[in-house]
Simulated assay, not measured.
Amino acid sequence: MMTSLRLFALASVAVLVAGCQTMTPAERRAADEDKCVSYGFRRGSERFAECLQRIELDRRADARSLRYSNYNWGWERPVYVVRPVVVRPKS
């Protein structure tokens, strides 16, 4: 029982770590170039460069949108910390 639980936990951690992999800048550039080629643009042309630029601008706009969408959770409002002080009269 304990062995199968440990095996399940290890497998779960492995799946989570595998899902956290990101693309290197070189891999991202190659994927962007492949996408522009699939659209019919020729490498080295002005239209190809514009395609790459638009992909990058879209990526930045998505990142900005995600960053600012966190404000919907209320983090943009000031946080007030209240610590009441009770003063009792001397008797």
Rank of each mutant, 00 (worst) to 15 (best):
M1Q: 10
D62I: 04
S45G: 09
E46C: 03
C51R: 06
L66S: 14
Q21N: 10
E33F: 01
R43N: 05
A30P: 00
V17L: 11
V87P: 02
S69H: 12
R83A: 12
T22I: 02
M2C: 07
G44V: 03
R67F: 13
R54T: 10
S45L: 05
P84I: 01
E27R: 02
I55M: 11
S91G: 07
G74K: 01
A63V: 14
V15K: 02
A18F: 09
A26S: 04
S45I: 04
L66K: 15
Y39G: 08
R88M: 10
C20R: 09
Y71C: 12
T24D: 01
V17K: 01
V82G: 02
R60T: 00
E76W: 06
E46M: 10
E33C: 01
V86E: 05
E33A: 05
S4F: 15
A18W: 10
V13F: 12
R60A: 11
S38V: 00
C51I: 03
N72G: 15
R83G: 08
V87A: 13
W75H: 11
S65C: 04
R88C: 07
S12N: 09
V82W: 10
E56I: 02
L57Y: 09
G44D: 09
R88K: 11
Y71Q: 11
A31I: 00
D34C: 04
A18E: 08
T3W: 13
D34Y: 01
S4C: 13
R59D: 11
V37H: 01
S69I: 05
V13C: 10
E56G: 03
E27S: 06
T3V: 14
D62K: 04
A31E: 05
F8M: 12
